[in-house]
Nucleic acid binder design. Structure first.
Lengths: 141, 141
DNA sequence: ATTTTTGTCTAGTGAGTTGCTCAAGTTTTG
DNA sequence: CAAAACTTGAGCAACTCACTAGACAAAAAT
């Protein structure tokens, strides 16, 4: 029941990018150094965040990455879903990636006892992470 | 951010064992058949739950497994921690298995921004799972 | 007492994921 | 053009997950 390094690194990188939001761009090695993240691995993460529309990048000599959305419009939930997939602890309670359990004897049944409990967990997690914005990270150093 | 099959199977097995609590014992193949769980894998799970003091077992001809504690004294949190380890989404916010992050630049700092958010998540998950008892599963079929 | 029926324990295994590296690009600027 | 940056894709070692296999131990039935 853990988040991956990818999510953790991604969030730490975004903390860094929040600091310079509106100002200059940050290069991958700057972020990597400040946050102790292997540069090439970080790159994959930044790319994923870029494809998801959170970051912009510029190549070339004075290139780098910058936030494309305001920190208060980015939630931890968004970021984690991009990098780690759905938040739900079991897929039959995911709202973004629902999948009927193949082997569960309650799958056909109107109510699965596990599903109820796990649904509560999912909602609690999503409730926090989908309302927690990057702006709460700003100037936290 | 998912629970393992181990936890899921374990909980489903316990649902089954709740049904017969106080009555007869259940054999591994009975549980396995009713819940569609590979029998040898289930065994490992039952053994782990036994070692943790939740189940009793009897060998031999009319052997099997039975709950040793009342369903209302067993929480989902306990079970999941036995089978899946700590609930915390990152180990620096675990209460049962805390570990300082090696690479995080905020590790030395009084407050890590991620830690705060993840701590909330951990508490929310634990709050639900540590108060959700197996008795809420009883006679759910 | 022996056989059968069950649980106990340890080890192994194949597939997939995680965390990371490398190399060969392409784009931009000086 | 050369240097500095991002881009893309392939590759890989280590680990974990889900499961399997097999030898063994105990209890009951015969």
């Amino acid at each position: 029941m853990k988040f991956s390094k990818k999510s953790e690194y991604g969030l730490r990188a975004l903390i860094e990018l929040c600091e310079t939001y509106g100002g200059r761009v940050l290069q991958r090695h700057e972020i990597a150094e400040r946050q102790n993240i292997p540069v090439e691995f970080l790159e994959q993460i930044l790319l994923a965040l870029k494809r998801a529309g959170l970051l912009a990048s510029r190549r070339g000599v004075r290139g780098g990455y910058s936030l494309i959305k305001s920190p208060e419009d980015i939630t931890l939930g968004q970021v984690i879903r991009i990098l780690d997939g759905p938040l739900a602890p079991i897929s039959c309670v995911s709202k973004t990636a629902y999948q009927k359990c193949a082997d569960c004897p309650y799958a056909a049944t109107p109510s699965c006892p596990l599903q109820q409990a796990m649904g509560e967990v999912r909602d609690a997690i999503a409730d926090i992470l989908d309302h927690y914005t990057l702006s709460r990270f700003a100037h936290s150093k």
